[in-house]
Write a protein that binds this DNA or RNA. Sequence first.
RNA 1: CGGGGUGUAGCGCAGCCUGGUAGCGCGCCUGGUUUGGGUCCAGGAUGUCGGGGGUUCAAAUCCUCUCACCCCGACCA
Length: 427
Amino acid sequence: MRSSVYFYPTLKEIPQEAQIASHRLMLRSGMITQVTSGIYTWLPLGLKVLAKISQIVREEQNCAGSLEVLMPTIQPAELWEKSGRYHDYGKEMLRIKDRHEREMLYGPTAEEVITDIFARFIKSYRDLPKRFYNIQWKFRDEIRPRFGIMRGREFLMKDNYSFDLTMEGAKASYQAMLEAYVRTFARMNLTAIPVRASSGAIGGNLSHEFQILAETGESEIFYDPEYEKLDVNTLTLDRLQTLYAAADELHDPQNCPVPLDKLKTARGIEIGHVFYFGTKYSIPLGAYVMGPDGKQIPVEMGSYGIGISRLVAAIIEAHHDEKGIKWPDSVAPFKVGILNLNIKDAPCTQLCENLYQKLLQAGVEVLYDDRDLGPGAKFADMDLIGLPWQIIIGPRSVTSGQCEVKNRRTGEKTEMSFDDALHSVSL
RNA sequence: CGGGGUGUAGCGCAGCCUGGUAGCGCGCCUGGUUUGGGUCCAGGAUGUCGGGGGUUCAAAUCCUCUCACCCCGACCA
């Protein structure tokens, strides 16, 4: 992609309304722009990142044996009346009426819709277990939206719903999701701590929230250092139940099993939440299957959310510096940026064009800054939008035959030949 | 919803107290200049001063109603 035809309206000045790093950087790098309180348009650069994150989440969900569906944003009140939540959910639910005065709502979550689908199509224990997920826009009419996309009213969420015959089965589903989450966040260079949680409005009796560590996180969390050694091979539900981790409001220093000198503390951003809630929805919505003994059994359910749009902000909170974003490779909107320091210098531009074409041919996602701007502006913009690699080519490259390759994450700069540059960023 | 604040050019702001018909920086357009960290010079365009009502010879400025947005708190992926 050429910068001259792309669209990323970068801002030199810090937008007044933005308080936290991710919000400021998303606005300044031209990823998003606010439409109204808590509601944003995703501009091309931001949308690209959102799509990359969605894809990673999707791959790990599929890998964990889940089936993707796409449920609507607008749901009928009727379904929520069955579960009792139409009354319970409160003002966070955006309620609307269609032209027939029928009560509708913009879905804040989708337990009712998916459970209804299950109830209508799945009748036998032989079809279990089943897990369905979708990646869809949700709306929660937050009392006070803030921090940009981090707490918007409209947000993109992956929500997965598991259906099992027994509680043991449900726990296996729960564990499969825990593992998928650890893998998912690891792929985004995030350290995630599954903190035991009260299950809130969705209800139930087993719940963990995933906090990802970032210095600017919203809440303080206290956790056993063993958490930092967790990976998918050592992570089991039983093991998790024995480890201590708590967010500040739930932290109880009196009854904390971890000695004070070992207890670790960090800032966390809640990015995912997993729940087991049994038959809370299956019974009222009629999600029963015929068991092996010929009896109707309400299915055991769980639900598992990941705030995808929030992840964009969370990744930035975890990976930025004073100049801008430092994208992990896996979610970067482009892998490489080429900076043509003087497009009016024909030989220099020729070098840039050649390299650009070679990178495209190699299948590398590249943003070529071919705009007629001074070098300073290009350096500043490229650091701001945070592509993992920068290849800097100026008139002096014409005589030296070298370009400068800069690693945005480490700041390391190396002069090398064009072939070497091509090779090193293609890895 | 309670408390606080802000709405003036695309962005960041001054002007408001003490009423006299709108300004600065950045950005944008034109010409030139410069080209390895937001070059420099010259010229130029852009405003229902958030909206309604009122006071006044005269309102960005005073009064009043209203809307939007932001911040703190309670709630949340």
